[in-house]
Structures are given as C-alpha cells and as structure tokens.
Amino acid sequence: MPTLPHAWFSARNALLALSLLAAAGCSQRPPASACGPVAYQLSDPAEPANRAVFAFNRSVDDYLLAPIARGYSALPDFTQQGVHNFVANFGEPKVFLNDLLQGNGERALTSLARFTFNTTLGVAGLVDVSGKMGLARHTSDFGQTFGVWNIADGPIVELPLLGTHNLRDATGRVLGIAVAPFGDNSDTVDTLGNAATAGGLVDGRADVLPLTDRLRTQPDYYQAVRDYTAQQRAERVAEGKADHPARCQGVPADA
C-alpha cells in the first residue's frame, strides 16, 4: 500500500483537480456567515431535462434504494453504527485533503488524528474511538472546497443516480469519485473501497429517510429537494469559510 502522504498528494490527482477548476471558472462573492439561514441563489435553466432525470432517479430510489435502506434501518443499532463508522473512516483522507485545500489547518489535523486513531485502535474504523476522545467528526468535500474558493454555484444539474447538484458541486462530486487517496494498486484497498462505497450508499440513504419522507409531502417533490439541497450546500460553504464545523438548525452535519 502506498504511503499516506504519497496517496493524498499524488500528481495525477492534483492535475485532475486543477483541470476541473480551470473548466469551472471563478466568481468573486461576498463572504458568508457561518450559520443559517445563508442566502443562496438558484438557476435552473434546464429544469425540464432535470425533472426527467429526477423522475428516473426517483424510480430507482422508490423500487431499490429506499426499500433496502428501510430494511437496513431495522438492523441492530450496533451494526448500523459499525457500518457508519467504517464508511466515515474510509472517507477521512478526502476530508483531510479538502481541509488542507480550504486552508483549515485545525480541521485537517483533526481529520488526520481521527483517521490514525480509528484505523489503528478502532479496528479499521468500525469503532469511533476518536469521538470518545473528543475529536468530533466533520465532513469536507470538493464542492465545498470550490465554494470556499469563491467558484460560482452554476446552474442546477440533476445527475443520473447521483442526485441534485449545482454545477460546482456536480464537478466536485465527480472529482471526489475520481480521486483515489489510497492508490489503485492493492486488491485489499479495492475490496475495502467497494465495501465502503456499498455501505455508504445504503447507510447514507437510511440516514436521510426521515428528511425525504418529509420532503415528499410537499406539493412539488423536485422543487423541495432542489431548494433544500441549495440551502444545505450554502450552509456547508459558509461552514468551510468560517473554519469550523457549523451546526446550523435544520441542516444535518453529515448531509
């Protein structure tokens, strides 16, 4: 397995990130406050096409993802917590990388410490020993990083199977999938990565079941999801600019 510094700062990943940033373009915007409600703007010029993709995504969710997530929610709490901890720990290197890219040194050190302790003492992350030590988990992603760098939101894009994003966050989501912090030359890492991806998909969907059940009661489910996502992402960018994890009312910390 490659060393962590080499994996996190590989030239290939750096070049990929810079290429996507160049394509996205920048826009100067005023600093946001750390907690909500944070103002946001919506641009949805491709709404008819987005609604068509949303309908496809909803069908997949209704008939596959949501039923699996509801079954998963019936498992014992310790099982769900173990899966959640493992998935979160496997994603910690990307959190660390984005903390550094955002210039958030304290948060980066927290991410590094969490990954080190949970991987070694927490049985590959199944147990969140870092949380018990007072090192609270936070999340960072490339979409948030681009926002901290004042890259404009861009229009709404509904990605097949990946959901609702603005263009900036869609670019960050694709980049997050492409970046391989642990390298790609180990069967063990590939197996763990596949397990983390599958576990994260089910665990993440189960986590937002109450939210989506509530949004489904709105007259326009597409609009409800789109507007909530825009607000939540604005809060996330504000959190990154404030250099600490915000706990804003109505916005899940891990959403």
Rank of each mutant, 00 (worst) to 15 (best):
C35N: 15
A230G: 06
A230S: 12
T188N: 12
E92G: 00
L175P: 05
A198S: 12
A74T: 09
S111T: 03
V129G: 05
V189Y: 05
S33Q: 14
S140I: 03
N57P: 09
V225S: 11
L192V: 00
T3S: 13
H6L: 10
A246M: 05
G204K: 07
D220N: 14
Q102N: 09
T120R: 10
P2I: 03
L161N: 05
A52D: 03
P210D: 06
L65G: 01
V202A: 01
F56A: 08
T110S: 14
D77C: 14
P76E: 06
L101I: 06
F86M: 02
D227E: 11
P48C: 02
V38M: 09
L109I: 11
Q41I: 04
N118W: 00
N89Q: 02
C248L: 13
N104L: 03
D141W: 12
A196D: 01
L215N: 11
P45H: 06
A152D: 13
T164S: 13
A69I: 03
T120I: 05
A198C: 08
A178K: 12
G143I: 00
G163Y: 01
Q218R: 13
C248V: 07
P210N: 03
S33F: 09
A206Q: 14
R233T: 04
A34T: 03
G193W: 00
A108Y: 10
D243G: 10
T110V: 10
A113G: 08
G200R: 01
L211G: 05
F78K: 15
W149D: 05
V237Q: 06
H165W: 11
M1K: 13
R70F: 00
Y222C: 04
M1L: 05
L159P: 11
P45R: 05
R107V: 00
L100W: 14
T171G: 12
F115R: 04
P30T: 04
L16S: 06
L201W: 12
T145H: 10
D169Q: 14
N185F: 07
F54I: 01
A22Y: 14
Y228C: 01
D207Q: 15
S27H: 12
Q232G: 08
P37L: 03
F96N: 01
P219C: 09
F115E: 02
Q223P: 01
A32D: 08
N104H: 14
A136P: 07
R247G: 11
D220E: 07
A234P: 00
A170L: 04
D62F: 03
K241E: 07
P160T: 05
T197R: 15
C35V: 07
G200F: 07
G25Y: 05
L97A: 11
F182H: 10
Q81W: 11
T119Y: 09
C248Q: 15
Q28E: 10
F146E: 02
R70M: 06
S186P: 00
I151V: 13
C248N: 15
A49G: 12
G199E: 02
W8I: 08
A14Y: 15
G71D: 08
G103A: 07
L42Q: 15
V60P: 07
R58M: 03
T229Q: 11
H84Q: 05
R173D: 04
D213L: 08
T139S: 15
G193D: 00
H165V: 01
N13M: 02
L75W: 09
R58N: 12
V87P: 00
L161P: 07
G154A: 12
V189N: 06
T188P: 03
A17M: 13
D187G: 10
Y228L: 06
E235R: 15
R51Q: 10
